[in-house]
Write a protein that binds this DNA or RNA. Structure first.
Lengths: 213, 213, 213, 213
DNA sequence: TATGAATGAGTGTTCATTCAT
DNA sequence: AATGAATGAACACTCATTCAT
């Protein structure tokens, strides 16, 4: 705070951050195998050597990018403060958030796809993941319990299955938007289509979870 | 059709078939970019040169594999004969079929993922796809109409959104089974888990479509 | 023998031979680590890809070169037909041969040096080596026995130690010819120096092995 | 010598020494080409930049290490005080010393090998080497003269050839211990083997030099 | 004196594709 | 119809060395 609080010597942190950002983009665009280290280096306005210096190798860089992506979404979810909303609103908010997050962070989806193509080889080695994941499941579990208590949610719903379903109905639509647009011969990404889909997804989840009255 | 119905120049057709089969496997396992032409040739017990002879190049081979995959699933769907079942049973059957098909043909999912990573570049060039797709949407649309007519389905449901949702809840679970198993710390692929998921998916769709009574 | 007895299709064997020859040169000149695959390919008038096709990788190529070098010298030794000479002449012939071989095949020395720098990592994996080596030790052992029998060689000499010594006094002189020429301030490689050294070596071995009379 | 006998700018000298020691190890292990500047810096607990500051570049560092190695062995040899021993004992002592020195300073051998691979490029530029070398040859020459005078050594032996032979029979055995152990299928480095070899070497030299009586 | 950041030119290796038979 | 040989462009990764502080 005294002398040079912000400026670091030749700014290693900034370089690392630029590399990570460029890597996320490139991995998202082309997958782990298709991504090019040269391109990452250029986009980061860094030297290829720096990537190996800071991140070891391409796979370790991918792992770091992936971990960061998971931590980011889980962190954002924690900020939703669902506890302060009535269960139904909270649930709707979660569906809406999930959809919006995927929409605004399309890299997340591609990274996850790539990781699954590689059988989660990198996530297996990660240590940060479990913690953030567990907290998330508990959050949804708590919401479900609260809803049941108040008589607005059906009892007996598995929070893991619900989580998966909420993710699925957004994720699938977006990851398969290219083939989908051809198969169904409509532009799945135009604004009205996106709004329509979100509404459909909210309806799907509410009908699944809420007691019919 | 008329000339030589039984006796084809057997070797050529067989070689093509072996190449296609090996290619589907390899593309599914490693994606378009990660697949190796050498490996396809070896697995097909064919010569690398044959691949180029019959299919032009790697991308064209991928396109052929992809088209075949879509034709296969659409053909199987047509055989369901949903028209002969009551709407509710027909809908459940469709959900069940979709799930089973993905489960038994995991290559389909990976091929589609790969194609979307490449922004449906190959599907765009395909001509066979539109036909089979349209027929499929009509089938589901017809089912919805019949269900509404009989008073068991809610009116106003978009068959495309429904299709996407039915696919999504199965597809997402299976394509993300590796990361999912780590995130949720359970084996998503053991028998009970699979049965449980199918039941959950049927419930999701029925609650979405059927009138609550 | 009928149609095209000598010419092979696009001559894979010739290419392999050219690669091996170029590799021997390059490895001898620069050691395993210092050798450049590019240079080997160029010198062999072959493509770099061919090296990997035929030999796997750089290390395997080195192993092949090394094995060939050992087989070559052991084969040449077998052709000496020491059995047909009186023991003393046979022994002298062996010393002379060893010296000449090192002199005419300087790559052999450098290859062996390089392999020892790498702790014989490649030779350990070789299967051909043991056979040819054993035959060689037996040859010298037989010669010693014969000399003892005839009363011209001292008894109790270990053939392995003798082998090593015969090799050592030639090998060391030649492998260290560069530093030696500076240290001793004479050109160790001029003709007279070479002749003088050979004579010295013969004297060394004969005095070591023969009975003094 | 006079000015600041005890208190040197300690850190600088210590850093240089640590670098030299680490460099000797690394060069001995991997040769000039295979040695890594990073590793030397790390092992020396110094900064890579220091190496360039104190020694110019990698090759100059190698030259310094090499010179030091030669000075060390020549210095040790001078301490033998062969003049105070009877010729035969003095000669045996020299053979024994040479063997022991190689055994206890294996880096020396590898450094010399590496330098010869590079055609003594660095030694050529050195100025200290000639002095120490000449003194050494003179020492052996003096010993030979003394032995001849006393009637125990044969006349006419070239001290340079003798030097080379004494070195050769130890050096070769040790530098080729890895390939040798495989070729001869015995562990050349176990204690008995080493003792046996030393005895054999002493015998070889004594028979070569001493008059047969 | 000392150090972490940064780089350009390589280095082994891989791959889709074409050539010659 | 089928095949082994050959290639050029690219790719992940490395290294000695210099820059900036």
């Amino acid at each position: 705070m005294t002398d040079k609080p912000t400026k670091r010597p030749r700014d290693a942190e900034a370089t690392k951050a630029r590399i990570l950002s460029a890597a996320k983009k490139e991995f998202a665009k082309n997958g782990l195998g298709g991504a090019r280290v040269d391109i990452i280096a250029n986009q980061a306005k860094a030297n290829k050597r720096m990537i190996y210096h800071y991140f070891g190798n391409k796979e370790d860089l991918f792992q770091t990018v992936l971990e960061e992506a998971y931590v980011d979404i889980r962190t954002a979810e924690q900020k939703l403060e669902l506890e302060h909303l009535p269960p139904r609103e909270a649930l709707e908010r979660l569906v809406r958030f999930t959809w919006d997050y995927y929409l605004r962070n399309p890299e997340f989806i591609t990274l996850v796809n790539s990781e699954n193509l590689h059988r989660a080889r990198h996530l297996k080695k990660s240590e940060v993941i479990e913690v953030v994941s567990r907290r998330f499941v508990n959050m949804v579990g708590g919401l479900l319990d609260r809803g049941v208590e108040q008589g607005v949610f059906r009892p007996g719903i598995d929070p893991v299955q619900l989580n998966i379903t909420i993710a699925a109905i957004g994720y699938y639509y977006l990851t398969n938007r290219f083939t989908g647009s051809i198969l169904f011969q409509r532009d799945l990404m135009k604004d009205e289509a996106l709004e329509e889909r979100l509404a459909f997804n909210i309806e799907t989840i509410l009908r699944l979870v809420c007691v019919s009255r």
